[in-house]
Lab assay of single mutants.
Amino acid sequence: MGFKLLSKLLVYLTASIMAIASPLAFSVDSSGEYPTVSEIPVGEVRLYQIADGVWSHIATQSFDGAVYPSNGLIVRDGDELLLIDTAWGAKNTAALLAEIEKQIGLPVTRAVSTHFHDDRVGGVDVLRAAGVATYASPSTRRLAEVEGNEIPTHSLEGLSSSGDAVRFGPVELFYPGAAHSTDNLIVYVPSASVLYGGCAIYELSRTSAGNVADADLAEWPTSIERIQQHYPEAQFVIPGHGLPGGLDLLKHTTNVVKAHTNRSVVE
């Protein structure tokens, strides 16, 4: 069995187990497998329904001669939608809004960016022009300005110390501490036991640490421990890039980060 097929099978099995364990909360999309990078042309966006009122959005972007996937989250909030992270750029984010209108038909009224990198804030200006209120932590807003990236308009308070959590509509926002970046936030959907790890969490097929220019490698494993301790009931975990899975993604990420750190020390 090929690795790609095995990865998709694991996603399907995880979703099936969740649907059985929580039949009222989960209505997993039966329309197909989780979209992969090879299936999404740059400039297009796919939506994948995880649970009743919960979707991931998947886009792709060219970077350094390669094409990478990027995940975000959409959560229903009454007759409105909360968006977590842009679709990595203005063109993708405009396509995301169009796809949401086509498939869901509810307005996106608020959006949260989970850290300051372009795959999370690139497209904020498109959201703002569409009347979406954009939010991020003060740290993310400051770092985005320093980096020359787009800056969300509103500040999220109460997320300055490791372990801080605040309720934001249908989700809980959690600051686990520094990891992929010093400002990275985690998003949890309690009604569906869905954990969105953003770039602080890796997919299972990833074996290298990737972009760690703004990471705190020493603190990252401790931050992941905080996530595990705060959300032990999480059933569906979405990484910032690639295929979702279960809580095993947290341990896998820790292993990859520690291996990278150990290699760096040896070198």
Rank of each mutant, 00 (worst) to 15 (best):
D214Q: 14
F26P: 06
K8F: 05
P35F: 09
S38N: 08
I40Q: 09
I20Y: 15
A234P: 15
D85S: 00
G198S: 05
A218V: 10
G122V: 08
D125I: 07
Q235C: 05
L10M: 09
T261F: 15
T153K: 08
G242A: 03
I58E: 10
L247S: 08
S181M: 01
P107T: 12
E203L: 02
A129G: 12
G131W: 04
G122A: 09
A234R: 02
A213V: 13
P23H: 12
T36E: 12
K4F: 04
A259E: 09
D64S: 09
N71D: 02
I224D: 01
F26S: 09
L143Y: 10
F236S: 13
T261D: 12
A133W: 14
S70M: 11
S223F: 03
G105M: 08
T36P: 06
I74H: 00
C199L: 01
Q103G: 13
A87Q: 00
A87S: 12
R226T: 15
N184M: 02
G78E: 08
A15F: 13
F174A: 03
E44V: 11
K8C: 09
L82G: 02
S137K: 14
I104K: 00
A21D: 12
L185F: 04
H57C: 01
A98L: 09
G72W: 01
P170I: 15
G43H: 12
F168L: 09
L243P: 05
V121Y: 03
L6R: 06
E157G: 15
I104E: 00
A130V: 10
L156F: 13
L127R: 02
P176Y: 00
V126L: 12
T253R: 01
E99H: 15
D29P: 12
S56C: 12
A218H: 09
P170E: 10
A25C: 11
G177V: 01
E219I: 10
T60K: 07
L97A: 01
K258E: 14
E147M: 07
V11W: 13
A215L: 04
F3I: 10
E233R: 14
E150A: 11
E147S: 13
S70C: 04
T140Y: 04
V67H: 15
E267M: 08
L47P: 04
D64E: 06
L249R: 01
I201K: 00
S7W: 08
L173E: 02
V45G: 03
S113E: 04
E147H: 09
P138F: 09
D64G: 09
H117T: 00
I58C: 09
V256T: 14
E99N: 05
L13C: 09
E101A: 13
L96K: 00
Q49S: 13
A218Y: 07
L250A: 03
Q228L: 15
V75G: 02
S162G: 10
M1Q: 04
G2N: 08
A133M: 15
S223L: 03
Y202D: 04
V67A: 08
S56N: 14
H115D: 00
T222M: 07
N92H: 05
G169I: 03
G123H: 03
S264W: 10
V124L: 08
D52W: 06
A21R: 10
P69L: 11
W88G: 00
N149P: 14
E157F: 07
V11G: 06
E39D: 09
R206L: 08
G78N: 08
S7Y: 15
Q103K: 12
L47M: 15
H230S: 08
S223N: 04
D119Q: 01
T134G: 02
P23G: 12
D248T: 14
G43V: 04
V132P: 01
A218I: 05
H180L: 01
S7M: 15
L185A: 02
E157L: 07
R76N: 07
K251P: 15
S205L: 12
L13Y: 05
K258I: 09
L73S: 02
A95S: 10
K8W: 06
T222D: 12
T86V: 06
E101Y: 08
I227W: 03
P170L: 07
L217S: 12
P232E: 08
W88K: 00
K102M: 15
V266Q: 12
Q235W: 05
S31D: 07
G105D: 14
S30M: 15
S264A: 13
S7Q: 06
S191A: 06
G65D: 07
I100S: 07
A179F: 02
S22G: 10
L156N: 02
I17D: 05
F63Q: 07
Y175R: 02
F116T: 03
G105E: 15
L143A: 08
I40K: 14
V257E: 02
A215T: 06
Q103R: 13
S22W: 10
S139R: 08
D119E: 01
E219H: 09
L24N: 08
R226K: 06
E99K: 10
L250Y: 15
T134H: 04
A98E: 13
I100P: 00
Y202N: 07
S113V: 12
R141F: 07
T14Y: 15
V237Q: 00
E225C: 05
A136C: 14
Q235V: 06
E39P: 11
S7A: 08
E172K: 04
E157T: 11
E101F: 14
Y231R: 02
E147V: 12
I74L: 08
L143V: 08
E99I: 10
E203R: 01
G123N: 04
Y175M: 11
H180M: 01
I104Q: 01
Q49C: 13
T261Y: 08
D29T: 14
G245C: 02
I186A: 11
I151D: 02
G163K: 12
I186S: 06
I40H: 07
L127W: 02
A136R: 03
Y68R: 04
G198T: 04
L243Y: 08
Q228K: 15
S205E: 09
H117D: 00
Y34Q: 11
S155G: 13
G65V: 12
E267I: 09
A133Y: 15
Y175F: 10
G245A: 05
P41N: 07
K102H: 06
K258N: 06
G169P: 05
G32P: 14
Y135W: 07
E219T: 13
R142E: 12
A234F: 05
V11M: 13
T207N: 15
D164V: 08
L5R: 09
V189G: 01
E145W: 10
G65A: 11
D216H: 06
E80C: 13
A213H: 09
L195R: 00
E203Q: 15
K258D: 13
L82Y: 14
Y135L: 04
P69H: 15
M1P: 03
N92M: 04
E147F: 08
A130E: 09
D29A: 08
Y135P: 01
A59Y: 04
V187L: 07
A259L: 09
E44L: 14
A19M: 15
Q228W: 14
N71G: 04
P138K: 13
G177R: 00
S161E: 14
Q61C: 06
G72K: 02
I100A: 14
M18K: 04
E172V: 11
G163I: 08
V257S: 02
R128A: 13
E225Q: 10
K258L: 13
D64T: 13
G198M: 04
G65H: 05
G177C: 02
P23I: 14
A51Y: 15
A136S: 08
G242P: 03
S193H: 10
N71M: 01
F174N: 01
A94E: 12
F3R: 04
V146R: 10
P35W: 11
E44G: 12
V171R: 02
S139P: 12
L5V: 06
I20Q: 07
S181T: 09
S155L: 12
